[in-house]
Amino acid sequence: MERTLYGMIAEFNSPQELIDASKAAHDEGYTHLDAYSPYPIEEVCEAIGLHGNKLPLIVLLGGIAGGLFGYGLQYWTTVIDYPLNLGGKPFHTWPMFVPVTFECIILFGALSAVVGMIALNGLPMPYHPVFNAPNFERASSDGFFLCIEATDPKFDKEKTRGFLARLQPQQVSEVED
């Protein structure tokens, strides 16, 4: 059975080494790369060229949809479908609709933040090639990894291995798909 190569991974012991390595890889011209760390490191995201994401827009749209839904629900039920005369007050009592509209904005916004984050991250994904890397269980504890993927246009098994080795990692290994 032939196994395809997913990429080349280097293991580091400290966040600073990972930041330096990510910068070096980015400067070297690698684009299909990812870093793995046990907690979020802003500098690593910057180093591998991650800027802004779509999440704030998704949440904004979710919140607007929630507001329209909440207000629309109340307007339709109390003004159109089941108008109930309470003490001669108008049917469209908009100040009384504010709390429910507000709660719907928050609910839809929060749901779109969580669902959006999970979906954009491609989760749930129980299997991923990078889990095959030696010592990878350290990535959720005290290990820092940089993986250059085989799909990168500059990827060359020997050259990439040499490049990663020059960054003085704990070890460099091939990750099989």
């Binding site: 793995y36 760390s37 989760l123 299997y127 990078v130």
Partner: peptide, 14 residues
């Protein structure tokens, strides 16, 4: 859910 600590994931997570 297969969380692997990827920088791309952390970025959106934050």
């Amino acid at each position: 859910m297969g969380w692997r600590g990827s920088a791309r994931h952390w970025h959106r997570y934050e």
